[in-house]
Computed example of a mutant assay.
Amino acid sequence: MTKKFALIVSLIFLITLNTLAQEPSCGCNKKKATRENKYKCDTTLFSNGAKLYWQRNCDSTWLTFENKEKLILKSCEKIDVYECQRTGLDFLKEYPNYLLFQYKWISGCCTPPDIILIDKETGNEIKRINNDQFVWGDVHENYVLFFSDTTYTHLIYLNNETDKAYDLHFDNKQVKKSVIKNNVLQLNDLFNNFIVSRNNFKFDYKTSEGVVKNLKIEFN
Protein backbone atom coordinates (compact mmCIF):
# COMPACT_ATOMS: atom_id res chain seq x y z
CA MET A 1 0.00 0.00 0.00
CA THR A 2 2.84 2.34 0.94
CA LYS A 3 4.67 1.63 -2.31
CA LYS A 4 1.49 2.27 -4.32
CA PHE A 5 0.90 5.58 -2.51
CA ALA A 6 4.51 6.66 -3.15
CA LEU A 7 4.16 5.77 -6.84
CA ILE A 8 0.97 7.87 -7.14
CA VAL A 9 2.65 10.87 -5.46
CA SER A 10 5.66 10.56 -7.79
CA LEU A 11 3.41 10.45 -10.85
CA ILE A 12 1.48 13.55 -9.72
CA PHE A 13 4.77 15.37 -9.12
CA LEU A 14 6.10 14.47 -12.58
CA ILE A 15 2.84 15.48 -14.28
CA THR A 16 2.91 18.84 -12.46
CA LEU A 17 6.51 19.52 -13.53
CA ASN A 18 5.70 18.60 -17.14
CA THR A 19 2.66 20.92 -17.14
CA LEU A 20 4.66 23.84 -15.74
CA ALA A 21 7.45 23.27 -18.27
CA GLN A 22 5.00 23.44 -21.17
CA GLU A 23 3.38 26.72 -20.08
CA PRO A 24 4.86 29.96 -21.44
CA SER A 25 6.66 31.89 -18.68
CA CYS A 26 5.22 35.30 -19.43
CA GLY A 27 1.48 35.40 -19.08
CA CYS A 28 -0.90 34.22 -21.78
CA ASN A 29 -0.94 30.45 -22.27
CA LYS A 30 -3.23 30.37 -25.31
CA LYS A 31 -0.41 30.54 -27.84
CA LYS A 32 2.48 28.11 -27.90
CA ALA A 33 5.95 29.55 -28.44
CA THR A 34 7.82 27.93 -31.31
CA ARG A 35 11.49 27.00 -31.21
CA GLU A 36 12.43 29.82 -33.60
CA ASN A 37 10.15 32.40 -32.00
CA LYS A 38 10.39 32.15 -28.22
CA TYR A 39 8.88 34.75 -25.94
CA LYS A 40 11.64 36.97 -24.57
CA CYS A 41 10.40 38.07 -21.17
CA ASP A 42 13.71 37.90 -19.33
CA THR A 43 14.91 40.99 -17.47
CA THR A 44 17.87 43.13 -18.51
CA LEU A 45 19.62 44.54 -15.43
CA PHE A 46 21.62 47.76 -15.67
CA SER A 47 24.62 48.91 -13.63
CA ASN A 48 22.55 51.40 -11.60
CA GLY A 49 19.99 48.77 -10.59
CA ALA A 50 17.38 49.75 -13.20
CA LYS A 51 15.57 47.03 -15.17
CA LEU A 52 14.16 46.57 -18.65
CA TYR A 53 11.74 43.74 -19.35
CA TRP A 54 8.91 42.57 -21.59
CA GLN A 55 5.43 41.76 -20.33
CA ARG A 56 2.41 40.42 -22.16
CA ASN A 57 -1.14 39.18 -21.84
CA CYS A 58 -3.52 37.68 -24.39
CA ASP A 59 -4.12 41.06 -26.08
CA SER A 60 -0.83 42.94 -26.15
CA THR A 61 2.89 43.13 -25.37
CA TRP A 62 4.75 45.97 -23.70
CA LEU A 63 8.31 46.96 -22.78
CA THR A 64 8.76 48.32 -19.26
CA PHE A 65 11.62 50.34 -17.78
CA GLU A 66 11.77 50.13 -14.00
CA ASN A 67 13.93 52.02 -11.54
CA LYS A 68 12.25 53.91 -8.69
CA GLU A 69 9.11 53.97 -10.81
CA LYS A 70 7.81 51.97 -13.78
CA LEU A 71 7.58 53.49 -17.25
CA ILE A 72 6.15 51.73 -20.31
CA LEU A 73 8.48 52.55 -23.21
CA LYS A 74 6.61 50.66 -25.92
CA SER A 75 3.41 48.69 -26.39
CA CYS A 76 2.00 46.59 -29.23
CA GLU A 77 -1.38 45.07 -29.92
CA LYS A 78 0.34 41.73 -30.47
CA ILE A 79 0.96 38.88 -28.04
CA ASP A 80 4.22 37.87 -29.69
CA VAL A 81 7.28 39.68 -28.31
CA TYR A 82 9.29 38.88 -31.45
CA GLU A 83 6.72 40.58 -33.68
CA CYS A 84 6.65 43.60 -31.38
CA GLN A 85 10.45 43.91 -31.61
CA ARG A 86 10.48 44.00 -35.42
CA THR A 87 9.45 47.68 -35.51
CA GLY A 88 9.52 50.59 -33.11
CA LEU A 89 11.76 51.01 -30.08
CA ASP A 90 14.53 48.45 -29.67
CA PHE A 91 17.23 48.36 -26.96
CA LEU A 92 20.84 48.17 -28.18
CA LYS A 93 23.35 48.77 -25.37
CA GLU A 94 24.01 50.33 -21.99
CA TYR A 95 26.59 53.12 -21.72
CA PRO A 96 27.90 55.07 -18.69
CA ASN A 97 25.58 58.06 -19.21
CA TYR A 98 22.56 56.58 -20.99
CA LEU A 99 20.86 53.63 -22.66
CA LEU A 100 21.13 53.39 -26.45
CA PHE A 101 18.00 52.49 -28.40
CA GLN A 102 17.00 52.52 -32.03
CA TYR A 103 13.54 53.19 -33.42
CA LYS A 104 12.91 50.97 -36.44
CA TRP A 105 10.37 52.53 -38.80
CA ILE A 106 9.86 49.36 -40.81
CA SER A 107 10.71 45.69 -40.46
CA GLY A 108 13.81 44.72 -42.45
CA CYS A 109 15.72 46.99 -44.80
CA CYS A 110 16.29 49.62 -45.92
CA THR A 111 15.06 52.64 -43.96
CA PRO A 112 17.56 54.04 -41.42
CA PRO A 113 16.36 54.08 -37.80
CA ASP A 114 16.07 56.96 -35.38
CA ILE A 115 18.73 56.75 -32.65
CA ILE A 116 17.46 57.44 -29.15
CA LEU A 117 19.40 58.06 -25.94
CA ILE A 118 17.41 57.31 -22.79
CA ASP A 119 18.17 58.40 -19.22
CA LYS A 120 19.27 55.44 -17.07
CA GLU A 121 17.63 56.85 -13.96
CA THR A 122 14.22 57.94 -15.24
CA GLY A 123 13.71 56.14 -18.56
CA ASN A 124 13.00 59.47 -20.25
CA GLU A 125 14.32 60.37 -23.69
CA ILE A 126 17.46 62.56 -23.58
CA LYS A 127 18.16 62.90 -27.28
CA ARG A 128 16.73 61.68 -30.56
CA ILE A 129 18.71 61.55 -33.81
CA ASN A 130 16.15 61.43 -36.59
CA ASN A 131 16.68 58.95 -39.41
CA ASP A 132 17.19 61.77 -41.95
CA GLN A 133 20.21 62.91 -39.88
CA PHE A 134 21.60 59.46 -39.09
CA VAL A 135 24.61 58.26 -41.12
CA TRP A 136 26.08 55.25 -39.34
CA GLY A 137 26.56 53.61 -35.96
CA ASP A 138 28.39 50.67 -34.43
CA VAL A 139 27.62 49.25 -30.97
CA HIS A 140 30.89 47.27 -31.04
CA GLU A 141 32.98 50.34 -31.82
CA ASN A 142 30.68 52.41 -29.58
CA TYR A 143 29.87 55.39 -31.78
CA VAL A 144 27.11 57.11 -33.71
CA LEU A 145 27.72 59.26 -36.80
CA PHE A 146 25.06 61.84 -37.66
CA PHE A 147 24.37 65.38 -38.83
CA SER A 148 23.41 67.94 -36.19
CA ASP A 149 20.40 69.08 -38.26
CA THR A 150 18.95 68.97 -41.76
CA THR A 151 21.19 71.76 -43.08
CA TYR A 152 23.81 68.96 -43.21
CA THR A 153 26.71 71.29 -42.46
CA HIS A 154 28.00 69.65 -39.27
CA LEU A 155 28.75 65.92 -39.19
CA ILE A 156 29.02 64.64 -35.61
CA TYR A 157 30.97 61.65 -34.33
CA LEU A 158 29.61 60.74 -30.89
CA ASN A 159 31.68 58.42 -28.71
CA ASN A 160 29.06 56.59 -26.65
CA GLU A 161 31.54 55.44 -24.00
CA THR A 162 32.92 58.90 -23.18
CA ASP A 163 29.90 60.92 -24.41
CA LYS A 164 32.34 63.19 -26.27
CA ALA A 165 31.39 64.61 -29.68
CA TYR A 166 33.70 65.61 -32.55
CA ASP A 167 32.58 67.28 -35.75
CA LEU A 168 33.45 67.93 -39.37
CA HIS A 169 32.16 70.98 -41.27
CA PHE A 170 30.56 70.75 -44.74
CA ASP A 171 29.76 73.76 -46.91
CA ASN A 172 26.17 74.84 -47.17
CA LYS A 173 24.17 72.62 -49.60
CA GLN A 174 27.27 70.52 -50.30
CA VAL A 175 25.69 67.31 -48.99
CA LYS A 176 22.34 67.96 -50.68
CA LYS A 177 24.12 68.44 -54.01
CA SER A 178 25.95 65.14 -53.46
CA VAL A 179 22.65 63.34 -52.88
CA ILE A 180 21.33 64.64 -56.22
CA LYS A 181 24.55 64.02 -58.16
CA ASN A 182 24.97 60.45 -56.92
CA ASN A 183 21.25 59.64 -57.15
CA VAL A 184 21.14 57.95 -53.73
CA LEU A 185 17.95 56.99 -51.93
CA GLN A 186 19.26 57.58 -48.42
CA LEU A 187 21.71 60.09 -47.01
CA ASN A 188 23.89 57.36 -45.52
CA ASP A 189 24.49 55.92 -49.01
CA LEU A 190 26.99 58.77 -49.53
CA PHE A 191 29.25 57.35 -46.79
CA ASN A 192 31.23 54.12 -46.60
CA ASN A 193 34.34 52.33 -45.27
CA PHE A 194 34.29 53.57 -41.67
CA ILE A 195 37.54 53.13 -39.73
CA VAL A 196 38.05 54.11 -36.08
CA SER A 197 41.59 54.64 -34.81
CA ARG A 198 43.05 56.12 -31.64
CA ASN A 199 43.37 59.64 -33.04
CA ASN A 200 40.71 59.92 -35.73
CA PHE A 201 37.75 58.50 -37.59
CA LYS A 202 38.09 57.94 -41.35
CA PHE A 203 35.46 57.29 -44.00
CA ASP A 204 34.74 57.59 -47.72
CA TYR A 205 32.37 60.25 -49.00
CA LYS A 206 30.79 60.54 -52.46
CA THR A 207 31.10 64.19 -53.48
CA SER A 208 28.90 66.38 -55.66
CA GLU A 209 31.59 66.04 -58.35
CA GLY A 210 30.94 62.32 -58.54
CA VAL A 211 34.24 61.25 -56.98
CA VAL A 212 34.97 59.47 -53.71
CA LYS A 213 36.96 61.37 -51.10
CA ASN A 214 38.56 59.96 -47.97
CA LEU A 215 37.67 62.26 -45.06
CA LYS A 216 38.49 62.14 -41.38
CA ILE A 217 37.35 63.56 -38.06
CA GLU A 218 40.17 64.30 -35.65
CA PHE A 219 39.82 63.40 -31.97
CA ASN A 220 41.32 66.55 -30.44
Rank of each mutant, 00 (worst) to 15 (best):
K3F: 12
K3L: 11
A6F: 13
L7Y: 12
I8C: 06
F13C: 09
I15W: 13
L17M: 10
T19R: 04
C28Q: 02
K30R: 05
K40L: 10
T43G: 04
L45G: 01
L52Q: 05
Y53N: 03
W54Q: 03
R56Y: 04
N57P: 01
N57Y: 04
N57T: 00
C58P: 00
D59P: 00
T61N: 12
W62F: 05
W62A: 00
T64W: 00
E69D: 13
E69W: 06
K70D: 07
L71H: 07
K78Q: 07
V81Q: 14
Y82K: 06
L89A: 03
Y98K: 07
L100Y: 10
F101N: 01
W105G: 04
T111Y: 11
P112T: 00
D119R: 14
G123A: 01
E125P: 10
R128I: 01
I129D: 06
N130I: 11
D132W: 12
D132K: 09
Q133R: 14
Q133L: 08
F134K: 04
V135W: 06
V139K: 15
V139I: 10
Y143W: 05
L145H: 08
T151D: 09
T151I: 03
Y152N: 02
Y157R: 05
N159Y: 06
T162I: 11
D167H: 12
H169Y: 14
D171P: 00
N172E: 08
K173F: 11
V175W: 04
V179E: 09
V179Y: 11
I180R: 15
I180A: 10
L185G: 14
L187T: 02
D189F: 12
F191A: 06
N193L: 13
V196M: 11
N200D: 15
D204V: 04
Y205T: 00
K206I: 02
S208A: 14
G210L: 04
V211T: 08
K213D: 06
L215W: 15
L215K: 14
